[in-house]
Nucleic acid binder design. Sequence first.
DNA 1: TTGTAAGCGTTATCAC
DNA 2: GTGATAACGCTTACAA
Lengths: 335, 335
Amino acid sequence: MPLTLKDIARMAGVAESTVSRAINNKPGVGKETREKIMDLVRKYNYRPNQLARGLAKKETQMLAIIVAELSGADYKIIKSIEAYANEQGYNCIICNTDNNQQKEEAYLALLSNQQVDGAIIIGGELANKNIINTALNKNGLLVLVNCLSEELLIPTILVDSGRGGYLATSHLLEQGSRKVAIVMGSRKDYLESEKLAGYLQALKDYHLEVEEKHIIETDGSREGGYQAFFQALEEGDLPEAFFVTKDILAVGLFDAIKMGGYLIPEDFSIVGYGESIISSIIDPGLTVVAEPLEELGRYAAEYIINLIQGKNPEEIIKVLEPDLKIGESSRFKIR
Amino acid sequence: MPLTLKDIARMAGVAESTVSRAINNKPGVGKETREKIMDLVRKYNYRPNQLARGLAKKETQMLAIIVAELSGADYKIIKSIEAYANEQGYNCIICNTDNNQQKEEAYLALLSNQQVDGAIIIGGELANKNIINTALNKNGLLVLVNCLSEELLIPTILVDSGRGGYLATSHLLEQGSRKVAIVMGSRKDYLESEKLAGYLQALKDYHLEVEEKHIIETDGSREGGYQAFFQALEEGDLPEAFFVTKDILAVGLFDAIKMGGYLIPEDFSIVGYGESIISSIIDPGLTVVAEPLEELGRYAAEYIINLIQGKNPEEIIKVLEPDLKIGESSRFKIR
DNA sequence: TTGTAAGCGTTATCAC
DNA sequence: GTGATAACGCTTACAA
């Protein structure tokens, strides 16, 4: 049976409203009274019930970070969101949806119910529009990161994956490779499809034909990357280079290439996606498309907090640019 | 302005209590009435406000997972907790404390305030006892995972890190190494100190002297692992084997050893801690102490949910045993 | 400066 | 079966 504000009021011999004012640092409380109250608060370690407070104030100083899959890259974004949010006096709860609509719905309900003041959705296939709409209709404040809402006009901030795909592919082409394959996750994933688009654009700019068999769609797992190589091998007409869109895929691909007795980058040049501990351990060091994840997170946090505080930011869609970090896996190739 | 239960009641022409009964699937509502109500609920996508519900019912079907640092290993535990919790109809929010007492306090407040029905704390230096006590006094239900409360009697479930340290060290000794060093994180970390204790016990059982300089305490980073090796090198009297207590440390150590022109396991045998993507990428494949993380998470979730539902489990402390997964980094050594 | 009282959106306890 | 009505713990006009 936790202590309530009423208890404190009774003990201090004042009204509840006075206690409320005192603990919220509001004016209109006598110095003496305030001290008496705060002493009791400290003594009994009283903490206001946030449920009740939220219900009454419609404000919780709490943000929800809704993420489809808690991977390494997303985690960097989360860290960065938390850092800024904390600075501004907000706490964050992380909600993992596993790409499950029902869960996403449940967590978005936190928003509609004002259990959190705002939510940031990171990645994944976007939720049911109805649900999002419901949340938004209820004055829910929402920002999307690295995903896109098809119809709804929701503030979005993302890294240009198309540009990333273009950078990766054109780098491989510049290094002398002509047959470049892409090893990717599901085309249905928005970011993946963008990377593919960048890849295609690069080929086009270099006046190269697109080979369907050089577009290798996988389940995005290590095993998927492994099989991708042998699939290419079986098809014949081996590519000279691979653009791999996920670090785990790259691990599998490396495994397979080494297993086949080939060398990187002598036999195959490779460019991966995303700076991670994994891509830095892989041997030889992976050339990767690097994303400004910290900036991404910070920007998202800033945005939602501005929204909460009633400041309406200018841009509704912010696009950040990735760049290329050259490693050893893509050395120049003499044709 | 979200729809409230009152609105639904008005539209259906019934009392609020009836609507409440209907949406909670409680008996005592006529079939027709119930249908009329549910139709409205669907039509307007009404969702009860969980804040109000929580306030009235003192129950939220929500669990908090409080974690000191969202690392790979902890993430496996979280996944497993979530899986079981979801099965049982609970949603989980993840709270990252960054080993910061203030944040821990804020998140624990979720518990005292009944915003969540229970909390699971994973790892890290344990919070201020006062705070935990406050949460518990308020009937907060709490389970600890991989950390220990010094005085308070809180249900705890953990993997025997002492045993892990012992397994690792004795394996290296059995493989023929005599000079085994330990490269570890902070001794203040409970789990790390346990691993050290296991290491010491193994040396003792093999009647070997403890060399202070073979106990290398680091900051637990890749860089820390890197420097650990050169530190050992400078000290002279190089160890023949290393027991590394964290995978990131192992990465740094590998870097350094290769940089120094040495071979693994020919020159140095190595055993790491925890199965992870990292330890599986490292070349040569790392021998590791493997922990039953899924079981750990599941057990914790089961425990807290039992507690919530009023079933009092038998054991208050559950210890799971790790085992050794042999890789290539610790091959037999002829002295 | 302080107190009174209404309200936030539910659930629960009674009557009817 | 159904409807009033009092909680739940807090905030916030408005009065005093």
